[in-house]
């Protein structure tokens, strides 16, 4: 495990915790796309099925369980506990536009044509587009609370650090995974526009609002 990988994982965890604490403290999930959170829960569920089949390390197992738990708690907060505060009107991204192509692609382009492998591939492809309902919601309402932008920043940072991790692993271990790398790069590109707004607005103390 290299420094980019561990910082990436910490950044990912921090993003998830920021979102949970924000919802919990404000007792509201306004401005948060429940659809993106459902997709992330689906991503973790389909990817971490190997919890039952392969043991990698204590770290790996613990982090997977934490990510799964946090994802389901977040979905519960949005659609259960604080349902009345959710912005379902603005969360209007059509999930089938993501799920249908992602399912098709995971059957076509995978390492092995086995159930577990196809589900793993599905989770990799789905993660690369799972944030789109959230970004769509922000572009629709034209604004985002500052704390929501911190969540997105750490989520994007996690992706960027994973790319650094892959470059490192390619040079030191001669390791790379084409499916993960291509999807990871696509995913990171989706955050570029947001990163620009984050640096030029949020870091200068302004609220993120679109013209």
């Amino acid at each position: 495990m290299n420094v980019f990988r561990i910082l990436g994982d910490i950044s990912h965890l921090l993003a998830i915790i920021i979102l949970l604490v924000k919802i919990w403290k404000s007792k509201s999930c306004a401005g948060i796309s429940g659809k993106s959170q459902i997709l992330f829960a689906l991503v973790f569920t389909t990817r971490y099925l190997d919890l039952f089949t392969t043991f990698i390390s204590i770290y790996n197992t613990v982090m997977k369980v934490i990510f799964l738990l946090c994802a389901y708690i977040t979905v519960y907060m949005i659609y259960g506990k604080f349902r009345k505060t959710s912005d379902s009107e603005n969360d209007s991204f059509r999930l089938e536009f993501l799920l249908v192509p992602v399912t098709g692609l995971s059957f076509l382009e995978n390492h092995n044509f086995t159930a577990l492998e196809i589900l793993w591939t599905f989770s990799i492809y789905l993660e690369s587009v799972a944030i789109l309902p959230q970004l769509f919601m922000i572009s629709k309402t034209g604004e985002a609370e500052t704390i929501t932008t911190h969540y997105l920043f750490f989520l994007g940072l996690y992706r960027a650090l994973y790319i650094a991790n892959w470059i490192w692993r390619y040079h030191t271990e001669n390791f790379y995974d084409q499916i993960a790398v291509v999807s990871g790069v696509v995913q990171t590109i989706f955050y570029c526009d947001f990163f620009y707004l984050y640096v030029t607005k949020v870091l200068k103390g302004k609220k993120l609002s679109l013209p």
Binding site: D50, Y176, D177
Partner: peptide
């Protein structure tokens, strides 16, 4: 180069 799976990653 190998084309292995990134199964040890999260």
């Amino acid at each position: 180069c190998h084309r292995r799976k990134a199964k040890d990653e999260l």
